[in-house]
Each structure stands twice: as C-alpha cells, then as structure tokens.
Simulated assay, not measured.
Amino acid sequence: MKENLIFIGMPAVGKSTVGIVVAKRLGKRFIDTDLLIQEQEKKLLREIIAEVGDDGFLKIENQVNRDVKAENSVISPGGSVIYCEEAMKHYKEIGTVVYLKASYQTIRRRIRNPQKRGVVLREGQTLKDLYNERVPYFEKYADITVCEDGCRIEETIENVLNAVRKYNKNAQKTRKKPGWKRPRPKK
C-alpha cells in the first residue's frame, strides 16, 4: 500500500480543496507543489511563466515535482505536471495517483475566465483544446479515477475516500495471493 496520494486533473476540479480535506481525514500532510515552485523561484507562477515561457516553466515544474520527498502525504501538483515525465514517474513510484475527473461542461462552468484563473493557454488554444489534450494524460497516469460531475464538494471527498479504501483493499488482496512476489525496484 503506497502511503501518498497524488491528485491530478484539470484546473478547477478541486485538487487543492479536496486534497486538504482528504489529508485531514486520513491524518496525512498536504503538499501543494505550485506553492513549492513559488517558494523556490521567489515569484508567482504567472511571473515565472512570463519570464521563462511555457517550456521553461515545465522544466521548473518537472524538477520541483520530481524532487518532492514525501511520506504519508496528499500531494496536489499543478494541472500541467502530466507533461513532466520524470515527475509523473516519481509520483507513480511514491504514491497512488487519483484523477479528479470532470466533464468539459463542468470545467467551463467553473472557469469563466481562464486568464484570470491562471490557466496557461498557448496562442490560439481554447480551454476545450486544453481539456482534450490533457484528458488522455490524466487517464494514462491515474490509478484511481473519481468523477465529480454533479457532485457537491462533500460528495467528491467521500467518493475519493471510498475509492482509495477500495483500491487499497484490492492491492492488499493482490499481495496475499500465493506465489506472488514483491517486484524488485528498477534501477
């Protein structure tokens, strides 16, 4: 059973809001990696992006997330972390990745103005384009998917807790099967 939970998903799905409450309910520490990036760079995210561009920001985001040392924590990285291969490999090794899924319509309703929300869109890219681009990555990395369409925040939190319990229970059953051996870590 991996003791860390890592939340991924589009902006406005509640990675931080849900993450904080889930961390408290499970007696875990909460880590917001956007705050770690801002602390390291001593600038706001939008200032970093304005200074180094999207690619430069992704390099910083990859490095900060890849270097997160966490035990018994709930980690909320920024939505673009899924583009950071090293960071996602690290997260898959140290925890269970939970995809907070919401339909485009739900995201659009929550994000009225993407620029004010701090959503980085490339020249000519729409929020719908970004959504369509990211969903396959979220699905690729997710160990657990929790759909929050039509749910209040309290329901999403309960759904996450139930899904994590079920996932951990199934993981324990798998480990107890006769002939099963713990895989050796890759070097």
Rank of each mutant, 00 (worst) to 15 (best):
residue 1 M to F: 12
residue 2 K to H: 09
residue 3 E to C: 12
residue 3 E to K: 12
residue 5 L to V: 13
residue 6 I to S: 02
residue 6 I to V: 09
residue 8 I to M: 07
residue 9 G to T: 12
residue 18 V to R: 02
residue 19 G to F: 03
residue 20 I to P: 03
residue 20 I to A: 11
residue 21 V to R: 12
residue 27 G to W: 10
residue 27 G to F: 13
residue 29 R to I: 05
residue 32 D to L: 02
residue 33 T to D: 00
residue 34 D to G: 00
residue 37 I to C: 01
residue 43 K to I: 04
residue 45 L to W: 15
residue 46 R to T: 11
residue 47 E to R: 00
residue 51 E to V: 06
residue 52 V to Y: 07
residue 55 D to R: 13
residue 60 I to D: 08
residue 61 E to D: 04
residue 64 V to I: 14
residue 64 V to C: 06
residue 64 V to P: 07
residue 66 R to H: 04
residue 67 D to Y: 09
residue 67 D to N: 02
residue 68 V to Y: 14
residue 68 V to S: 09
residue 70 A to G: 07
residue 72 N to S: 07
residue 73 S to H: 05
residue 78 G to I: 13
residue 81 V to M: 09
residue 83 Y to T: 03
residue 86 E to P: 02
residue 86 E to Q: 08
residue 89 K to R: 12
residue 90 H to Q: 11
residue 92 K to G: 05
residue 92 K to N: 08
residue 94 I to T: 15
residue 97 V to K: 12
residue 100 L to Q: 02
residue 109 R to C: 00
residue 109 R to D: 12
residue 112 R to A: 12
residue 112 R to K: 14
residue 114 P to H: 10
residue 115 Q to S: 11
residue 119 V to Y: 06
residue 120 V to E: 08
residue 126 T to Q: 01
residue 128 K to C: 02
residue 129 D to N: 05
residue 134 R to A: 00
residue 138 F to Q: 03
residue 140 K to W: 09
residue 141 Y to M: 05
residue 144 I to G: 02
residue 148 E to M: 10
residue 150 G to A: 11
residue 155 E to V: 01
residue 155 E to W: 10
residue 157 I to Q: 01
residue 163 A to K: 13
residue 164 V to W: 03
residue 167 Y to H: 15
residue 167 Y to K: 13
residue 168 N to R: 14
residue 168 N to A: 15
residue 171 A to D: 15
residue 171 A to S: 15
residue 172 Q to S: 05
residue 173 K to Q: 14
residue 173 K to G: 13
residue 173 K to F: 12
residue 174 T to E: 13
residue 176 K to C: 10
residue 177 K to G: 09
residue 177 K to A: 14
residue 178 P to G: 06
residue 180 W to T: 03
residue 180 W to K: 08
residue 184 R to P: 03
residue 184 R to M: 11
residue 187 K to L: 10
residue 187 K to H: 10
